[in-house]
């Protein structure tokens, strides 16, 4: 059963030094507040899995939390590079970062295989690309029925999955709506999971009969962090703060400006700042 904890307690109990961690959210619902808490607690030697490292991993990599990154698209969406990720790969700053690079299809399939309790994912992929030459985990398998050669990658089985969702109810069930990404798969594939939510409600109320719900017994810890996805967004609560994604390009370009920003906005702050960040972006209740 999930336990409702403060974000600091939740991160402390779910994310440990040396863990393989998936902090997912496909553009939508990226758990930024949890990322900041991992940085504040000084987690080290993490293997970070995420389809799109985005600003959340750019920050964690720049602050030295990660030894390894497993990913499929490492840019700042619509803006350009993730400068901290590039500095780590190109120059080994703040230390060397090992990478394991995939395609989106492979990552999505690997999460699904992890959730399904399978050792590997099988799909039609990677044909004619150079990725298998640089990633020895990409292998192939022959279909025993048709003889077709298919790609295979190991299932993702993270120690910890961290996601942001819209709401939890009093029993600790969790509701997601909108762009769902791979969060359900990441949580079900992981040994431990932490879900930050916008709010806790008595009852989810009217909803689709097929709503995406993670039952309480699939989640280890819940922390209530309004605005916790900022500058990503939460469908129906606040919009994506595209301007900050653009601003990050300048902040993160140089090591000094990056470190100054982290000190000012993360190290010396608490999760409460996220509610203030999204105040202006809140979608007015209809």
């Amino acid at each position: 059963m999930s336990r409702v904890l403060s974000l600091a307690e939740a991160v402390e109990s779910v994310v440990r030094d040396g863990d393989t961690v998936s902090m997912e959210g496909f553009t939508h619902l990226i758990p930024h507040a949890a990322g900041h808490e991992v940085i504040r607690q000084g987690r080290k030697h993490l293997t970070l899995i995420r389809m799109t490292p985005d600003l959340i991993y750019d920050q964690m990599i720049g602050m030295g939390c990660a030894d390894r990154l497993v990913f499929s698209w490492g840019g700042n969406p619509g803006v350009g590079s993730l400068h901290r990720l590039r500095d780590a790969i190109e120059n080994g700053w703040p230390h060397k970062l090992e990478i394991e690079e995939h395609s989106h299809a492979a990552m999505a399939n690997a999460y699904e295989a992890g959730a399904a309790g399978l050792p590997c994912a099988v799909f039609r992929g990677y044909i004619g690309t150079d990725l298998p030459k640089v990633n020895p985990k990409i292998k192939s398998i022959t279909c025993p029925y048709t003889g077709e050669k298919l790609a295979t990658v190991p299932a993702h089985r993270p120690d910890a999955a961290v996601i942001h969702a819209l709401k939890a109810d009093r029993e600790g069930n969790v509701l997601l709506e909108g762009i769902l990404g791979v969060q359900k798969e990441a949580v079900l594939a992981a040994k431990r999971s932490l879900v930050t939510v916008e709010e806790v409600v008595d009852d989810f109320g009217p909803r689709s009969l097929n709503a995406c719900i993670l039952p309480s017994w699939t989640v280890s810890a819940i922390a209530v962090v309004p605005g916790g996805a900022f500058p990503s967004y939460a469908q129906g609560y606040y919009t994506r703060f595209n301007a900050f994604y653009k601003e990050w390009d300048g902040i993160s370009r140089e090591r000094d400006s990056f470190l100054a920003w982290m000190k000012e906005n993360v190290l010396g702050k608490t999760p409460d700042v996220f509610a203030a960040h999204v105040r202006a972006l809140r979608i007015a209740a209809e």
Binding site: F26, T27, P77, A105, I179, L180, G181, V182, N242
Partner: peptide
């Protein structure tokens, strides 16, 4: 959209499926 997953895309879509479903 600035990103591949702006809310605008979901708000105006006929339906939105998970990423594994999209690729598979």
């Amino acid at each position: 959209p600035l990103s591949i997953g702006d809310g605008e895309l979901c708000d105006t879509a006929l339906t939105t499926v998970s990423v594994p479903e999209m690729f598979r």
